[in-house]
């Protein structure tokens, strides 16, 4: 079996597939790639099923080599990637020879790369998924320098060529994201619900796979909500804008807890959720009403 030897793991590299949905009733987060469309594209480029496991490389810094010839693709963030010292394109299948050195440099746009390998990363699945869940500790450990990861069997006969793949870097300017108001918008003043859409928000450096924290002017709870006191814990979805007493929303991401006790003022449209994977600390966000 082919294996990947990780020479450097970078600040945070984890194995991710499309996660383990369906276990929320026993307290297990969905987890999985934050930028699901980037992982899917990478897998299609190398002839894998879309849900095969790849490596989510946060910021960059991953390097290593395979002990056999493999097809790889790097998707998601935009930055310098080299194979055997040659620059290779993002979002493009690349043939690597055994022993050749892969190096993923620091992202210049976007934040999370996905390394897809023909055959997929073949660590043992836990509850049907190979994803590392940083909140609950389910799945494989965070990668460290010197790790060896098994690669599954590639099926070149099943290769479905990708005719067109996107080329270009993720947005680095202000990003506009559609939101649906509720379910707990009645916990906030009408002025605060409006302010969500009229103010500009900034991604906090304290963001992670559990949630994207937003900085800005705090949202205020309604007089009724102050009377209601604490919200009993309720089920949460990825994309929910949970508002703790600080008034600054957190957008819940893949590793979010299955239940939470802060009211959700609005929820990101599912089709736009991947964008939060590629926002960089300090980047500006505006919200518009979803349709």
């Amino acid at each position: 079996m082919t294996a990947l030897t990780v020479r450097t793991a970078g600040p945070l590299s984890t194995v991710q597939d499309l996660g383990r949905p369906g276990h929320a009733a026993i307290g297990v987060p969905s987890s999985g790639a934050l930028d699901r469309s980037a992982l899917r594209l990478g897998n299609r480029l190398v002839g894998n099923a879309e849900g095969a496991a790849g490596i989510e490389v946060t910021v960059g810094g991953l390097s290593g080599s395979f002990d056999g010839d493999v097809w790889i693709a790097v998707t998601g963030a935009w930055g310098p990637v080299t194979v055997g010292g040659r620059a290779v394109d993002i979002n493009h299948p690349v043939r690597m020879v055994a022993g050749e050195h892969l190096e993923i440099g620091m992202a210049e746009a976007g934040l999370r790369y996905y390394l897809a390998v023909a055959g997929g990363i073949a660590v043992p699945p836990v509850l049907g998924s190979r994803s590392t869940d940083l909140l609950s500790g389910t799945g494989p450990a965070v990668l460290v320098d010197g790790d060896t990861l098994p690669i599954g069997q590639a099926h070149p006969e099943s290769m479905r060529p990708v005719d067109i793949s996107p080329w270009g870097r993720p947005d680095v300017g202000v990003v506009t994201v559609p939101l649906f108001v509720g379910p707990r918008d009645d916990w906030f003043t009408p002025a605060s619900v409006d302010a969500l859409f009229t103010r500009t928000w900034t991604l906090s450096p304290a963001s992670n796979r559990v949630g994207a924290r937003l900085e800005g002017t705090p949202l205020e709870r309604s007089a009724r909500a102050v009377e209601w006191g604490e919200l009993p814990s309720e089920g949460m979805v990825a994309g929910a804008l949970q508002v703790p007493p600080s008034g600054l929303p957190t957008v819940l991401l893949a590793d979010h807890p299955t239940t939470g006790g802060y009211p959700v003022i609005a929820v990101v449209a599912s089709a736009s959720l991947d964008r939060f994977a590629q926002l960089r600390p300090g980047q500006e966000i505006r919200f518009r009403h979803g349709r």
């Binding site: 949905p21 369906g22 276990h23 929320a24 009733a25 009993p232 814990s233 309720e234 089920g235 599912s270």
Partner: peptide
Amino acid sequence: VVDVVPAARSVLVRIDPT
């Protein structure tokens, strides 16, 4: 329907909107 999640005073149904 992806999940049915009971909690303290509510039940959440999570769906795949596609």
